[in-house]
Design a binder for these strands. Structure first.
Lengths: 120, 120
DNA sequence: GACGTAAAGGCAGATATCTGCTTATTATTC
DNA sequence: GAATAATAAGCAGATATCTGCCTTTACGTC
Protein backbone atom coordinates (compact mmCIF):
# COMPACT_ATOMS: atom_id res chain seq x y z
CA UNK A 1 0.00 0.00 0.00
CA UNK A 2 2.07 2.83 -1.37
CA UNK A 3 2.22 5.79 0.97
CA UNK A 4 2.58 9.55 0.63
CA UNK A 5 6.11 10.29 1.83
CA UNK A 6 6.11 11.32 5.48
CA UNK A 7 2.56 10.10 6.03
CA UNK A 8 1.60 7.34 8.46
CA UNK A 9 -0.72 4.44 7.72
CA UNK A 10 -3.64 3.88 10.11
CA UNK A 11 -1.98 1.10 12.07
CA UNK A 12 1.07 3.25 12.64
CA UNK A 13 -1.09 6.08 13.90
CA UNK A 14 -2.96 3.68 16.17
CA UNK A 15 0.35 2.44 17.58
CA UNK A 16 1.65 5.92 18.27
CA UNK A 17 -1.60 6.98 19.88
CA UNK A 18 -1.66 3.87 22.07
CA UNK A 19 2.00 4.49 22.92
CA UNK A 20 1.04 7.92 24.20
CA UNK A 21 -1.63 6.39 26.42
CA UNK A 22 0.60 3.56 27.66
CA UNK A 23 3.27 6.12 28.45
CA UNK A 24 1.13 7.47 31.25
CA UNK A 25 1.88 4.40 33.33
CA UNK A 26 5.25 3.45 31.94
CA UNK A 27 7.74 5.06 29.61
CA UNK A 28 8.25 1.87 27.64
CA UNK A 29 6.01 -0.79 26.15
CA UNK A 30 6.57 -4.03 24.29
CA UNK A 31 4.98 -5.50 21.19
CA UNK A 32 2.78 -8.04 22.87
CA UNK A 33 1.47 -5.44 25.25
CA UNK A 34 0.78 -3.12 22.33
CA UNK A 35 -1.12 -5.91 20.61
CA UNK A 36 -3.38 -6.23 23.63
CA UNK A 37 -3.76 -2.47 23.92
CA UNK A 38 -4.84 -2.25 20.30
CA UNK A 39 -7.07 -5.30 20.57
CA UNK A 40 -8.71 -4.00 23.71
CA UNK A 41 -9.80 -0.87 21.95
CA UNK A 42 -12.09 -1.14 18.97
CA UNK A 43 -9.06 -1.46 16.69
CA UNK A 44 -9.16 -5.24 17.01
CA UNK A 45 -9.73 -5.75 13.32
CA UNK A 46 -6.44 -3.98 12.59
CA UNK A 47 -4.55 -6.85 14.08
CA UNK A 48 -5.32 -10.28 12.78
CA UNK A 49 -1.76 -11.45 13.13
CA UNK A 50 1.16 -10.26 15.17
CA UNK A 51 3.37 -10.10 12.11
CA UNK A 52 1.63 -6.98 10.91
CA UNK A 53 2.16 -5.26 14.22
CA UNK A 54 5.80 -6.18 14.58
CA UNK A 55 6.53 -4.99 11.08
CA UNK A 56 4.79 -1.70 11.78
CA UNK A 57 6.86 -1.32 14.95
CA UNK A 58 9.97 -1.93 12.89
CA UNK A 59 8.95 0.71 10.37
CA UNK A 60 8.21 3.25 13.07
CA UNK A 61 11.59 2.61 14.58
CA UNK A 62 13.29 3.02 11.23
CA UNK A 63 11.40 6.29 10.74
CA UNK A 64 12.66 7.44 14.12
CA UNK A 65 9.24 7.74 15.76
CA UNK A 66 10.02 4.88 18.12
CA UNK A 67 13.23 3.63 19.62
CA UNK A 68 13.80 0.24 21.14
CA UNK A 69 16.11 -1.76 23.35
CA UNK A 70 16.14 -5.27 24.73
CA UNK A 71 15.28 -5.54 28.38
CA UNK A 72 17.84 -6.73 30.90
CA UNK A 73 18.04 -10.50 30.33
CA UNK A 74 17.83 -11.19 34.04
CA UNK A 75 14.21 -10.06 34.09
CA UNK A 76 12.79 -12.63 31.64
CA UNK A 77 14.98 -15.27 33.31
CA UNK A 78 13.51 -14.44 36.68
CA UNK A 79 9.96 -14.30 35.34
CA UNK A 80 10.52 -17.29 33.05
CA UNK A 81 9.14 -15.80 29.90
CA UNK A 82 10.64 -14.71 26.56
CA UNK A 83 12.61 -11.47 26.39
CA UNK A 84 10.79 -8.34 25.44
CA UNK A 85 11.92 -5.64 23.11
CA UNK A 86 10.99 -2.41 24.83
CA UNK A 87 9.83 0.47 22.69
CA UNK A 88 9.39 4.10 23.56
CA UNK A 89 7.97 7.03 21.66
CA UNK A 90 10.57 9.57 20.60
CA UNK A 91 9.97 13.32 20.53
CA UNK A 92 9.51 12.99 16.78
CA UNK A 93 6.95 10.27 17.44
CA UNK A 94 4.97 12.40 19.87
CA UNK A 95 5.04 15.18 17.33
CA UNK A 96 3.78 12.86 14.62
CA UNK A 97 0.82 11.87 16.80
CA UNK A 98 -0.09 15.54 17.24
CA UNK A 99 0.24 16.17 13.50
CA UNK A 100 -1.88 13.14 12.67
CA UNK A 101 -4.50 14.26 15.16
CA UNK A 102 -4.63 17.75 13.66
CA UNK A 103 -4.93 16.24 10.18
CA UNK A 104 -7.78 13.96 11.33
CA UNK A 105 -9.53 16.90 12.98
CA UNK A 106 -9.29 19.04 9.89
CA UNK A 107 -10.66 16.19 7.78
CA UNK A 108 -13.55 15.88 10.26
CA UNK A 109 -14.26 19.62 10.01
CA UNK A 110 -14.18 19.38 6.23
CA UNK A 111 -16.72 16.52 6.30
CA UNK A 112 -18.92 18.54 8.62
CA UNK A 113 -18.86 21.55 6.29
CA UNK A 114 -19.69 19.25 3.39
CA UNK A 115 -22.63 17.72 5.24
CA UNK A 116 -23.99 21.19 5.94
CA UNK A 117 -23.80 22.08 2.24
CA UNK A 118 -25.13 18.72 0.95
CA UNK A 119 -27.43 17.44 3.74
CA UNK A 120 -28.19 13.96 2.26
CA UNK B 1 5.79 -42.08 37.86
CA UNK B 2 7.41 -42.57 41.20
CA UNK B 3 11.14 -43.20 40.92
CA UNK B 4 13.75 -45.17 42.80
CA UNK B 5 15.85 -42.55 44.57
CA UNK B 6 18.95 -41.68 42.54
CA UNK B 7 17.62 -43.40 39.43
CA UNK B 8 16.89 -41.65 36.14
CA UNK B 9 13.75 -42.03 34.06
CA UNK B 10 14.18 -43.02 30.40
CA UNK B 11 13.73 -39.48 29.06
CA UNK B 12 16.39 -38.19 31.40
CA UNK B 13 18.79 -40.92 30.26
CA UNK B 14 18.00 -40.11 26.63
CA UNK B 15 18.74 -36.43 27.27
CA UNK B 16 22.07 -37.15 28.95
CA UNK B 17 23.10 -39.55 26.21
CA UNK B 18 22.17 -37.05 23.51
CA UNK B 19 24.02 -34.36 25.45
CA UNK B 20 27.15 -36.50 25.31
CA UNK B 21 26.78 -36.81 21.53
CA UNK B 22 26.00 -33.12 21.03
CA UNK B 23 29.02 -32.26 23.12
CA UNK B 24 31.28 -33.58 20.38
CA UNK B 25 30.50 -30.54 18.27
CA UNK B 26 29.73 -28.01 20.97
CA UNK B 27 30.03 -27.92 24.72
CA UNK B 28 26.54 -26.49 25.13
CA UNK B 29 23.11 -27.25 23.73
CA UNK B 30 19.67 -25.71 24.10
CA UNK B 31 16.24 -27.23 24.65
CA UNK B 32 14.90 -26.83 21.16
CA UNK B 33 18.04 -28.38 19.73
CA UNK B 34 17.75 -31.26 22.18
CA UNK B 35 14.15 -31.77 21.09
CA UNK B 36 15.29 -32.14 17.51
CA UNK B 37 18.17 -34.40 18.51
CA UNK B 38 15.78 -36.68 20.40
CA UNK B 39 13.17 -36.53 17.67
CA UNK B 40 15.75 -37.33 15.02
CA UNK B 41 16.71 -40.50 16.79
CA UNK B 42 14.13 -43.19 17.33
CA UNK B 43 13.13 -41.56 20.62
CA UNK B 44 10.50 -39.48 18.85
CA UNK B 45 7.65 -41.01 20.82
CA UNK B 46 9.25 -39.75 24.03
CA UNK B 47 8.53 -36.23 23.01
CA UNK B 48 5.00 -35.30 22.05
CA UNK B 49 5.16 -31.93 23.68
CA UNK B 50 8.02 -29.67 24.57
CA UNK B 51 6.74 -29.27 28.10
CA UNK B 52 7.87 -32.76 29.01
CA UNK B 53 11.36 -32.07 27.74
CA UNK B 54 11.76 -28.72 29.44
CA UNK B 55 10.59 -30.14 32.73
CA UNK B 56 13.05 -33.01 32.42
CA UNK B 57 15.83 -30.51 31.70
CA UNK B 58 14.82 -28.61 34.82
CA UNK B 59 14.94 -31.77 36.91
CA UNK B 60 18.34 -32.73 35.57
CA UNK B 61 19.63 -29.30 36.42
CA UNK B 62 18.21 -29.50 39.91
CA UNK B 63 19.87 -32.90 40.33
CA UNK B 64 23.15 -31.35 39.25
CA UNK B 65 23.59 -33.45 36.10
CA UNK B 66 23.17 -30.41 33.87
CA UNK B 67 23.94 -26.78 34.38
CA UNK B 68 22.51 -23.88 32.39
CA UNK B 69 22.98 -20.23 31.58
CA UNK B 70 21.25 -17.74 29.31
CA UNK B 71 23.15 -16.88 26.19
CA UNK B 72 24.47 -13.38 25.63
CA UNK B 73 21.36 -11.35 24.69
CA UNK B 74 23.16 -9.72 21.78
CA UNK B 75 23.18 -13.02 19.90
CA UNK B 76 19.38 -13.57 19.70
CA UNK B 77 19.00 -9.85 18.94
CA UNK B 78 21.40 -10.13 16.02
CA UNK B 79 19.84 -13.35 14.78
CA UNK B 80 16.29 -12.15 15.53
CA UNK B 81 15.09 -15.18 17.39
CA UNK B 82 14.16 -15.90 21.02
CA UNK B 83 16.90 -16.31 23.60
CA UNK B 84 18.19 -19.75 24.31
CA UNK B 85 18.98 -21.29 27.64
CA UNK B 86 22.24 -23.12 27.12
CA UNK B 87 22.74 -26.39 28.96
CA UNK B 88 25.87 -28.41 29.47
CA UNK B 89 26.51 -31.78 31.00
CA UNK B 90 28.33 -31.66 34.32
CA UNK B 91 30.91 -34.19 35.43
CA UNK B 92 28.20 -35.74 37.56
CA UNK B 93 25.99 -35.91 34.49
CA UNK B 94 28.62 -37.66 32.39
CA UNK B 95 29.12 -40.10 35.23
CA UNK B 96 25.38 -40.75 35.42
CA UNK B 97 25.33 -41.61 31.70
CA UNK B 98 28.10 -44.14 32.24
CA UNK B 99 26.30 -45.63 35.22
CA UNK B 100 23.03 -45.84 33.31
CA UNK B 101 24.81 -47.49 30.40
CA UNK B 102 26.41 -50.08 32.67
CA UNK B 103 23.03 -50.77 34.27
CA UNK B 104 21.42 -51.18 30.85
CA UNK B 105 24.22 -53.51 29.75
CA UNK B 106 23.91 -55.68 32.80
CA UNK B 107 20.14 -55.88 32.31
CA UNK B 108 20.79 -56.90 28.70
CA UNK B 109 23.19 -59.62 29.82
CA UNK B 110 20.62 -60.85 32.32
CA UNK B 111 17.98 -61.07 29.60
CA UNK B 112 20.39 -62.95 27.39
CA UNK B 113 21.09 -65.48 30.12
CA UNK B 114 17.37 -65.87 30.68
CA UNK B 115 16.71 -66.44 26.98
CA UNK B 116 19.33 -69.16 26.95
CA UNK B 117 17.66 -70.91 29.86
CA UNK B 118 14.06 -70.43 28.67
CA UNK B 119 14.25 -70.30 24.82
CA UNK B 120 10.62 -69.36 24.11
C1' DG C 1 -0.88 -59.41 44.82
C1' DA C 2 -3.84 -55.35 45.60
C1' DC C 3 -3.51 -50.48 46.82
C1' DG C 4 -2.23 -45.82 47.68
C1' DT C 5 0.67 -42.20 46.35
C1' DA C 6 4.36 -39.51 44.43
C1' DA C 7 6.09 -37.94 40.45
C1' DA C 8 6.65 -38.32 35.30
C1' DG C 9 4.15 -37.86 31.00
C1' DG C 10 0.67 -35.77 27.96
C1' DC C 11 -2.27 -32.08 26.46
C1' DA C 12 -3.24 -27.48 25.79
C1' DG C 13 -2.07 -23.01 25.52
C1' DA C 14 0.47 -18.61 27.01
C1' DT C 15 4.37 -15.57 26.21
C1' DA C 16 7.21 -13.00 22.93
C1' DT C 17 9.16 -12.07 18.49
C1' DC C 18 10.28 -12.74 13.73
C1' DT C 19 10.19 -14.07 8.54
C1' DG C 20 8.54 -15.62 3.77
C1' DC C 21 5.01 -15.54 0.67
C1' DT C 22 0.78 -13.84 -1.31
C1' DT C 23 -2.91 -10.33 -1.63
C1' DA C 24 -4.81 -5.82 -1.30
C1' DT C 25 -4.52 -0.98 -1.51
C1' DT C 26 -2.66 3.40 -2.55
C1' DA C 27 -0.06 7.07 -4.95
C1' DT C 28 1.87 8.25 -8.97
C1' DT C 29 2.34 8.27 -13.97
C1' DC C 30 0.53 8.43 -18.36
C1' DG D 1 -9.50 7.30 -15.80
C1' DA D 2 -6.53 3.22 -16.42
C1' DA D 3 -2.16 1.14 -15.76
C1' DT D 4 1.83 0.58 -13.01
C1' DA D 5 4.77 0.42 -9.14
C1' DA D 6 5.47 0.30 -4.37
C1' DT D 7 4.53 -1.33 -0.06
C1' DA D 8 1.27 -2.37 3.81
C1' DA D 9 -1.72 -6.05 5.37
C1' DG D 10 -2.90 -10.86 5.82
C1' DC D 11 -1.80 -15.68 6.31
C1' DA D 12 0.96 -19.24 7.90
C1' DG D 13 4.36 -21.01 10.55
C1' DA D 14 9.13 -21.07 12.87
C1' DT D 15 11.78 -20.21 17.03
C1' DA D 16 12.30 -20.77 22.07
C1' DT D 17 10.66 -21.48 26.59
C1' DC D 18 7.42 -22.04 30.22
C1' DT D 19 3.13 -23.32 33.17
C1' DG D 20 -1.42 -25.46 34.73
C1' DC D 21 -4.16 -29.27 34.86
C1' DC D 22 -5.21 -34.07 34.23
C1' DT D 23 -3.65 -38.94 33.40
C1' DT D 24 -0.55 -42.62 33.76
C1' DT D 25 2.96 -45.33 35.74
C1' DA D 26 5.93 -47.43 38.91
C1' DC D 27 7.63 -47.70 43.68
C1' DG D 28 6.70 -49.21 48.38
C1' DT D 29 3.78 -50.89 51.72
C1' DC D 30 0.67 -53.88 53.68
Amino acid sequence: MRRKPGALVPLEIAICRAALILRRRDEEFHGYEMARALGAEADARLLTAYGTLYRALGRLEKMGLLKSRWEDPRIPARESRPSRRLYSLTALGAEAVATARRAADSRARARKRLRRLVPA
